[in-house]
Design a protein around this nucleic acid. Structure first.
Lengths: 127, 127, 127, 127
DNA sequence: GTGGTCTAGACCACC
DNA sequence: GTGGTCTAGACCACC
């Protein structure tokens, strides 16, 4: 649970966000579950507490968790808004790229093939 | 031909690269055509010559143009390698995003719908 | 580590590229190792930071290092692509020259002799 | 006889040198044969006479032709020195590259294969 | 005139 | 602190 690559091009706080989201999506973390405290996680990962705090604040804003003062952070009971917003963000990202590729001369058939090939792969890749 | 938005988040040299690529893709620039000289373009766009130079150097590297010292820059006669590499870059970009979206729980059908909708739009966007 | 000859006909940024590549090839620099920061190296070599930056950018592009904004530059963990591309570049260079020499009337046997003589020399040359 | 590509990366005067040398090597021009006059060639190729002169001067220096004042340029009767110097230049070029490739980790066997493959090709390439 | 290299130094985002 | 971008302007080789 939470493994950080300090040399990755992805900022540390984003790695935490991505991993927390994936754990919720794949039900490793369920509604109501507590997240590690900022302090304990910062010690365990040898990371500045501010970085953890930044990730948790963003996850709160995105509707994935609730931060209860003096108690800690917990996965939201009602994740509907989170999934709604996430899907919207993902779709916009996809549409922006497809517009760019179409404009760049990429034929539709190649994208369709790629899409199907990726979705037909077994979920072999770990997080 | 070449319009720069200095307030864009896209670096100026990338704007030049994108526009040059689009002009070649849409045959506004044809093989053998000269590009504006580094100096003349820098004056016209009020941009430092080094920035133009950086864009042209990258376009040379990508196989879109040949830069002949003392003569100028010209669209490559044989653009095969350019189109091959460009397609490979585009495909990798698409696959990386689709992997991420699949991993993030995005259903295939939504991506298919988006894809078809975008490719059925008339080419209304200008360069 | 990194010695520049400012009077050489080889551009400074290329000297840096060549030396970095050689240090990786001869395991003086190993995967994951940090390279000197742009600023520290520019001070030590009395060279403009832009020149170092240009070399590092090219080495990133060639797949020899990863440049992580705000962290530094590190030798790539997976150098497979770097070695693959390097070999391809080397081979093309060799073939182009041999074609020219053959065309210029050079007999095969002379090239074979040269080749073997050079490869039989002990590795006396230092980096 | 003499075809110039003004957009080539190879300077015009070098193109003339290369073509003149190849014509001698392949006996299109034989000892004693006259070369086109500077003026006639400059008109025919639409090139500055200085450029032609520069090429002829260099060919004289290399021992390929003799320039007889008031008469014109002719292929040298005794081409021994020319071929000796040319071979030396070629060999040095080859050795420098092979040293660099060896230093860059290129295995001998790959170079041997390339060499033989190129020399076994039929002379299909035109000048 | 042309592109190629380099310096000196600014400002940005990210940490 | 780090790398990434950009400006202003110099000097070079080649033509």
């Amino acid at each position: 649970m939470f493994q950080i690559d300090p040399l990755s091009r992805i900022p540390v706080y984003e790695q935490i966000i991505i991993q927390a989201e994936n754990m919720v999506i794949h039900s490793v973390l369920k509604p109501g579950d507590p997240l590690p405290s900022v302090r304990s996680l910062s010690v365990r990962l040898s990371i500045n507490p501010n970085t953890i705090q930044k990730a948790y604040t963003e996850l709160d804003r995105r509707g994935l968790l609730v931060s209860i003062s003096g108690k800690g952070c917990f996965v939201r009971e009602n994740l509907a808004e989170f999934f709604f917003l996430k899907r919207a963000r993902q779709k916009k990202q996809f549409e922006d790229l497809v517009h760019a590729l179409k404009n760049g001369g990429m034929p539709l058939s190649l994208l369709e093939d790629s899409l199907h090939q990726i979705y037909e792969e077994e979920e072999a890749q770990a997080i």
